[in-house]
Design a protein around this nucleic acid. Structure first.
Length: 421
RNA sequence: GGAGAGGUGGGUGAGUGGCUGAAACCAACGGUUUGCUAAACCGUCGUACGGGGUAAACCUGUACCGAGAGUUCAAAUCUCUCCCUCUCCGCCA
């Protein structure tokens, strides 16, 4: 959510930002509602002022034993007027709020303007694509051969996109989760284990609701949502809190399964582990001072990149263009890892600065040192990392001519084995 | 799921219809003292949205004591509904 005052004072900047993201511009309507809301507030407040003054008078007169019938009569009329203005005000407020929740975050000036994947800017690359003298298998071919993930039985148990990991496949998952968490904790992130279901308020706070409801699995009977990412519960961890400036930045990491409906996906995108309805991820979340959020974004990116480096997986960093960014983000990087079997880049991390967009929705502020007024913090998050595609890249890039897979050294102490197959 | 107790400012916690935006304490912040630290003492100290002020200061209005509705001229305070927390019982991994 954007600051209504900012919208009021810089409508053109906001409209430009919305246009760049390719979203619907409802700013004129917002301004119109805002103006009538403020008119109603002023009218109502004048009447309430009258009510308060006269009521005080009545109290005084009664204490003095005087008759107060006349002012009481007057106040009955005022009371009704206040009530009808409040009702109208409420209606306008609800409409305005609904609209404001649907206004996207505006992109940072450094974000390239564009709508297509080719408008994303590659800003760096790490590692060399492996060179091999045999035909590389895809990870689903390797999985089939090694028997470490069972898609068919998963589909029988639940449905497509819910694989069962087994034997060394299961152990590899567990190893990666532990590796990612240990690395995060070593870099100053506090480990949280949050709920896997959230209520509607939390989902609205991070921006999944109202517009992305179809992304999530819902539990209608209890009015809950399965989390699509740990971002949702972890960012809401400090909802409605006033933080102390000296406690910032607050850095958290959390491992959770993630649940996504992914309606409408098809083709090679969904082969094997490329896109699942349930997958594991370690997420990093930061609450930071608004003045330093772009530095924090870079260090968050570095934290995620380090994992890929330790795993020896070649990757590239993309600065996402305005059209490829989500509704809530001001700036976003994607990390994409090279998978030799599929000969394509796989997104394994998405690292974003939301500025105050989420903080305003979830009402997380910090009190500046000294006597300043509370300010909204900035929130950021990044995957570090999403497991299935890391597994996919690991299998494909570290395969041997015989179809075995060598485990990178950084994982040995977590897996307890050095090769699969 | 059943019974009971409770939800007040950054925190603890007073407050049962008008003089309460809210005592007191703690924390925080500013200062005095001190060789430094600590302690002690003095002072400041809720948030949001308006209006005034060139503006910081400051003055002023309204709202907010879990959420919503109601009673009343007037609600933190009375009534109802809902949410949450705690205790006991039941069920259960």
């Amino acid at each position: 959510m954007l600051d209504i005052r900012f919208i009021r004072e810089h409508p053109d900047v906001v409209k430009e930002g919305i246009r760049k993201k390719g979203e619907v511009d409802m700013i004129d309507k917002v301004l119109e509602l805002d103006a009538s809301l403020r008119a109603l507030i002023q009218k109502g407040e004048a009447l309430k002022n009258r009510r308060n003054t006269v009521s005080e008078e009545i109290g005084k007169q009664k204490r003095d034993g005087k008759d107060a019938a006349a002012p009481i009569k007057e106040m009955e009329a005022v009371k009704n007027e206040i009530k009808s203005i409040d009702e109208e005000l409420r209606r306008v407020e609800v409409t305005l709020n609904k609209l404001l929740l649907a206004v996207p975050n505006i992109p940072h000036p450094s974000v390239p303007v564009g709508t297509k994947p080719t408008d994303n800017k590659e800003i760096s690359k790490w590692g060399e694509k492996p060179v091999i003298d045999f035909k590389a298998r895809t990870h689903w071919e390797l999985i089939d051969k090694l028997g470490i993930v069972d898609f068919d039985r998963g589909a029988r148990i639940t449905g497509a996109g819910f694989p069962v990991y087994k034997d060394r496949g299961a152990k590899l998952q567990r190893a990666l989760i532990n590796f990612f968490l240990d690395e995060a904790v070593a870099r100053g992130y506090r480990e949280l284990q949050p709920p896997l279901m959230v209520n509607a308020t939390s989902a609205t706070g991070t921006g999944q609701l109202p517009d992305k409801e179809d992304l999530m699995y819902t539990i209608p009977k209890d009015d809950l949502y399965l989390i699509p990412t740990a971002e949702v519960p972890v960012t809401n961890y400090h909802r409605d809190e006033l933080l102390a400036e000296q406690d910032l930045p607050l850095k958290y990491c959390a491992y959770t399964p993630c649940f996504r409906r992914e309606a409408g996906s098809y083709g090679k995108d969904v082969r094997g582990l490329n896109r699942l309805h349930q997958f594991d991820k370690v997420e990093l979340v930061k609450f930071v001072h608004p003045g330093v959020s772009y530095n924090e974004l870079e260090s968050l990116r570095a934290d995620a990149e380090l994992l890929l480096q330790k795993l020896g997986l070649p990757y590239r960093v993309l600065l996402m263009c305005t059209g490829d960014m989500g509704f809530t983000q001001a700036k976003k990087y994607d990390l994409e890892v090279w998978a030799i079997g599929q000969e394509r880049w796989l997104e394994v991390s998405s690292i974003s600065n939301f500025e105050a967009f989420q903080a305003r929705r979830i009402n997380v502020r910090m009190r500046p040192r000294g006597s300043g007024k509370p300010e909204f913090v900035h929130t950021l998050n990044g995957s570090a990392l999403a497991l299935p595609r890391v597994v996919a890249a690991l299998l494909e890039n570290y395969q041997t001519p015989e179809g075995k897979v060598v485990i990178p050294k950084a994982l040995h102490k977590y897996t307890g084995f050095e090769v699969i197959g």
